[in-house]
Simulated scan of single mutants.
Amino acid sequence: MNIPDLPPFWAVIPAAGVGSRMRADRPKQYLSLAGKSILEHTLDCFLDHPRLKGVVVSLAADDPYWPELACARDPRIHRAPGGRERADSVFNALQTLGELGAEPTDWVLVHDAARPNLARSDLDNLLMTLAHDPVGGLLAVPARDTLKRADADGRVSQTVDRSVIWQAYTPQMFHLEPLRRALADAQDAGATITDESSAMEWAGLSPRLIEGRGDNLKVTRPEDLQWLAQRWAQR
């Protein structure tokens, strides 16, 4: 793949969450994995990319862990205030990008802080495929298992056609100003926004699905961290 053909991009990492399901003594993005915090591994997925323009990390105001990381002093990384919800943190990061001189049409890749196993091949494929797309899109994986819809009593009410179902991953790649505007309008309307794609969908746009690797795992539970540690130990 010819790197100069890939578009330059900014990365946004919302990292203000607490990750309560990990049942740990600190937010999950600061748990240790192979000698570094999960967040450091996540940042490493982008920091050595030659087309990166910079990174904005959204952090809680009282975050005591970030200043302890060596990457906190990296001049390519900028800090934005975290919000109550993911959408708030991403919106704040986009505002910060504007203050840093980013153009409205610049590509922004939003990636989960606790998704440290992003493959360079997936990142480059996302950039290459969406370079000239009018909307943008996201990494995703087609559903592989049989899916059931539950009723209020926890019983199966329907088997869902999995051929049209995809599991949304990150990064999610959109132009700065359309994403900022979609998030702002959705928040003003009180819409439920769970990821950047859902904001663009709410604005009436159809993001493109780019199939990625299934091991682009988001660390949510203790067993996820254990799985990654074992997998990386085999490298």
Results as ranks from 00 to 15, higher is better:
P4W: 08
L6T: 04
F9D: 01
F9C: 09
V12L: 10
I13S: 01
V18C: 06
M22N: 04
R26M: 09
P27G: 12
K28W: 04
Q29R: 13
L31N: 03
L31M: 11
L31H: 06
S32N: 07
G35Q: 06
G35S: 03
K36Y: 03
H41N: 09
T42G: 01
D44R: 15
K53L: 15
K53H: 13
V57Q: 01
V57C: 00
S58M: 02
L59Q: 01
L59Y: 02
L59E: 02
A60H: 11
Y65M: 02
P67G: 09
E68H: 08
E68T: 15
L69P: 00
C71P: 03
A72L: 04
R73D: 11
R76G: 08
R76S: 12
R79K: 13
G83A: 08
R84H: 08
R84F: 13
E85C: 11
D88S: 07
V90I: 08
F91N: 10
L94D: 04
L94W: 00
Q95I: 08
T96L: 11
G98Y: 00
G98T: 00
G101K: 01
A102M: 05
L109Y: 07
L109P: 02
A113R: 02
P116R: 05
N117P: 00
L123K: 08
N125K: 13
L126K: 11
L127Y: 05
A131E: 02
H132Q: 14
P134H: 00
V135R: 00
G136L: 02
G136I: 00
L139N: 04
A140I: 05
R144V: 09
A150G: 06
D151W: 09
D151C: 08
D151G: 15
D153Q: 11
G154V: 03
V156W: 13
Q158P: 06
V160A: 05
A168W: 15
T170N: 06
P171W: 10
F174Q: 01
F174H: 02
E177P: 03
A184Q: 15
Q187V: 05
A189K: 15
E196T: 09
S198Q: 10
S198H: 03
M200P: 14
G204T: 12
G204F: 06
L205D: 12
L209P: 11
K218G: 13
K218N: 14
V219Q: 07
R221K: 12
D224N: 10
W227V: 13
L228H: 05
L228G: 05
A229E: 15
Q230I: 07
